[in-house]
Design a protein around this nucleic acid. Structure first.
Lengths: 232, 232, 232, 232
DNA sequence: TATGAATGAGATTTCATTCAT
DNA sequence: CATGAATGAAATCTCATTCAT
């Protein structure tokens, strides 16, 4: 899954992040959430540069002075939003990681989770899309690719296990494969989160591909299974 | 291919677009290009919002007044850049469209062209990535998904032909398949254009996956062929 | 001496000043000093306007709320700092006032004391320099020129005594002379306290003029003696 | 003379300074002056930090945007003001440099010029006073002590010539002497420019010392002559 | 009394766009 | 046509001060 995925254990929690001042941790959780929600909405809707902290503060019902007592800068606020998203994503992926089953069963679950997560948190996903933009590379560098590294490791392990069990053709390169699989999942995720990618999905796969996520998932699993299973 | 693709004929050409004033067509082509190049560089490097058209004008060696005599607004300049990119992409894809061969041979060529195009025009590609962002959806809507529609149509035709020839399993949905295939190609393209996606590629598929595009292409083709060919 | 000088008796003491609330007198003296020290450091380093009382409070280890329970405003805190400085200066000058000797012996001592005081309390001196600034005239007016008045009176008396004793030429105006003498002492004091005036001293009198205060004092005394003694 | 003085040739001219953008040189001189005047007034009245560029722009009758098209920053505007002041001062001192006469005649002229310059340009002088403040040391460093270096060199030469002519006692150190003389002139200058130092002058030398500059000058010259002339 | 979260006016700076020359 | 000076709304961020706990 694009920005995170099959992780083994929660490695990241809001208390450990370094992007907000300690003041922020001392205010009521619902107020914290209200602020992050306002920020997510503004960042997702307008993009990092066009987003206005004043608007975020106003929508969150706090003063601009308070905003700056919680976050040292616009960048830090943005990073905190990213972090909170990572946490959510991690939790969403817990069920994939913790489930029993082989590569295919897990891939199926992962697609389902991705779709659901994208629909429920489409604004957060829109922010993920923007972070990959060149103009935000300085921010991307700050979060680095921690999540991706973790996800990739999981893919590598699952694929190797599947190979050992005769479930994946030996002549496919594990690493390249992990890249392709995550690409497929990530694009599904994007397609359920962003307006642009949703339209694109409809153009390619038809209008009801969006409205009937289950059957898109079925089709993707057919393609993947076909692509991986050894041929006689 | 993501942003454009197997097109049969040039449908789009700079003269037909509606995003620049007629004055722009009256200046020498090399001056036109200098302006577009400066715009591409600025938009790609800083993102739409952070880009400054004053800077673009300066780098292009023209006055800001002239800039506004060619383009009515920042938006229009951006749209013109997008259009010129589409033209380039179209030309790049000509060789895929015009070649003989079945689906697999064409997919192979398409991946190769995508990689090359991404490397040669990475700034343009970075702009493509940004356009899919929510904050730029009002611009994305303006160019709409004309290119994607065209590309999708080609995919659909090729896949159906391949099915008829017994080269693609009948139990795969044509439209869903076209979506997955373009996703795979698009992500490869992104990975060779943007810093962020390049790093991601390395995380998943290893450092030399980027330096050895040919073998990544080979791996992708193995996966696709496996995924599509009917099983005995 | 510029900002204070040959005073006979302590006229000014912290308890009498009007710039802090009574709560300030009730806290332990070392806490008082810690607060004033933090204020001196901040005001001296950044100047009145750029100084932040939030920073002062933090550095003093007290809350901003307490700060405002001790001092009604930034202005009052600043005035209190000035007052505490005056006290220090007064004590430093005690030894000049209380010593026996004629005008020349006292001037010599005064220069020595000024140099030492400037080096030991350079931050306080930097604040004195700033108070003379036009932007702070409303504050300067508040502390007025009490100290200067006192100092001037001493000068006048000493000079008149020296004239009576035949040690100073009768054709020099007492009041103008007191002004010139204090100017000379004050500039020496500034030159040992502020970065800017130190550099200026070096430019005029050479690098070791700063490192060898004793010989600068000797030279100044030669000049003064020459300038005041009656000619045959 | 404190911030400049007996210079031989104009070394500094507005066209050579580096603190404004070229745009500034292209606007009418009276507009340039209006802007500098507004800046001088604001900086002198409130001090560097408390001064507001918005206020300066408004008082100069230009937009804030124009302000920033002339000067890249508040700092640069300030530096430009300093430079224009240096130019004025230089011109004022031309008459001292160009005149015939020995050290004493020139010192007399210098005091007169300083007094006049201070009264005519008291706001500029107030800014000079502030630049020596510790909080503005980063600005002071930018202008360095060019002017002072030049002035000091002149003093050194004049004193040595006077010594050779038997007009100055040989047992006085040339460099230390130059420092003391400039201190005396500088303090007179300050006393006619700043509110604070004017009050101080009155406290020491009486109320009419300010209103009768000529006699203060006479007194100062008596003191200097006494202090320098060799004794029989 | 002590605390420190909250406030918001105001400061500096940027930049798309207009328009007189 | 070309130029680039002028504009001013709006953005980020600071900090003296208040006040509920």
């Amino acid at each position: 899954m694009s920005k995170a995925a099959i992780t083994t254990d929660s490695v990241y929690s809001m208390n450990e992040n370094e992007y907000h001042k300690t003041t922020f941790t001392r205010i009521p959780p619902d107020k914290q959430q209200r602020i992050l929600d306002a920020a997510i909405q503004e960042f997702a809707g307008k993009g990092y540069n066009a987003a206005s902290i004043n608007v975020i503060a106003r929508n969150a019902g706090i003063s601009i002075g308070s905003m700056y007592s919680y976050f040292a800068s616009k960048e830090d606020l943005f990073m905190s939003v990213m972090d909170s998203g990572h946490n959510l994503l991690e939790q969403a992926l817990k069920e994939v990681v913790d489930m029993p089953g082989d590569l295919y069963e897990r891939m199926d679950k992962m697609i389902e989770v991705s779709q659901r997560y994208a629909m429920e948190n489409h604004q957060l996903n829109q922010i993920y899309i923007e972070i990959s933009t060149e103009g935000l590379s300085h921010l991307a560098r700050r979060i680095s690719l921690k999540m991706e590294s973790m996800t990739a490791a999981i893919y590598h392990r699952l694929i190797d296990e599947a190979k050992a069990a005769g479930l994946v053709s030996m002549n496919l390169d594990t690493r390249a494969l992990s890249f392709f699989l995550d690409n497929l999942v990530m694009m599904v995720q994007f397609s359920y989160a962003s307006d642009y990618y949703r339209e694109r999905l409809k153009v390619y796969a038809g209008d009801n591909s969006y409205n009937d996520p289950a059957s898109l998932r079925t089709e993707l699993m057919k393609f993947i299974r076909n692509g991986l299973l050894p041929r006689a």
